[in-house]
């Protein structure tokens, strides 16, 4: 699996997480998805997700995309 192939797999995982929280009000859902990614994803997976997002984030659904953006914002602030 190349880095190019790994991105879509992470997108699939993130979208799955997003679906569990989708019934929640948007800010709560986004926060919970971001929290899940922080708590359970190795930093390199999050980094690759951010990299994938920078390249357009194709296939990433709205809520997980917002969650990844939130993590990206935090990374910038740090």
């Amino acid at each position: 699996m190349t880095r190019v192939e790994y991105g879509p797999k992470l997108v699939h995982l993130a979208n799955q997480i997003g679906k569990f929280f989708a019934h929640q009000p948007k800010p709560e859902a986004v926060a919970n998805i971001a929290d899940h990614l922080r708590k359970f994803w190795d930093p390199r997976m999050r980094a690759q997700m951010l990299e994938y997002l920078e390249q357009g984030g194709s296939g990433l659904e709205e809520l997980p995309k917002m969650a990844v953006e939130q993590i990206a914002d935090e990374a910038v602030k740090k």
Binding site: Y6, F40, D42, R44, M45, Q48
Partner: peptide, 17 residues
């Protein structure tokens, strides 16, 4: 920070890290 789960280890092995 959390580490890799088994499926992630396999993915990252293929990805190179």
């Amino acid at each position: 920070e959390p580490g890799l789960r088994i499926p992630n280890m396999i993915d990252c092995a293929l990805e190179g890290s």
